[in-house]
Amino acid sequence: MAISRAEVEHIARLARLGLSEEEMEALTEQLGRILAHMEVLRQVDTRDVPPTYHVLPLQNVLRTDTVQESLSQEAALRNAPQAEAGAFKVPKITEG
């Protein structure tokens, strides 16, 4: 199964990836190969195999509800490209 160039562009846009012409072409080809491999896997009869939702043999990893110390405001904002008045400053949000 091949993937169309338009689909790759759409996915790149959703992921906010700015790709060059060459990258777009290479990725269309590579993603197509990955999907083609999925086609191979689909030929396996899985009628009696329960779905694998998670790959690790773990379940119910929980922590107790206790408050731990947070970062200081200064530390939290240290990596922010822009900060002001204790807040992360970002380009104006226009929607909702």
Partner: peptide, 12 residues
């Protein structure tokens, strides 16, 4: 004074 500015402020 900042409300009209071209920025939003985020509290996490």
């Amino acid at each position: 004074n900042i409300a009209s500015a071209q920025a939003s402020y985020i509290d996490l």
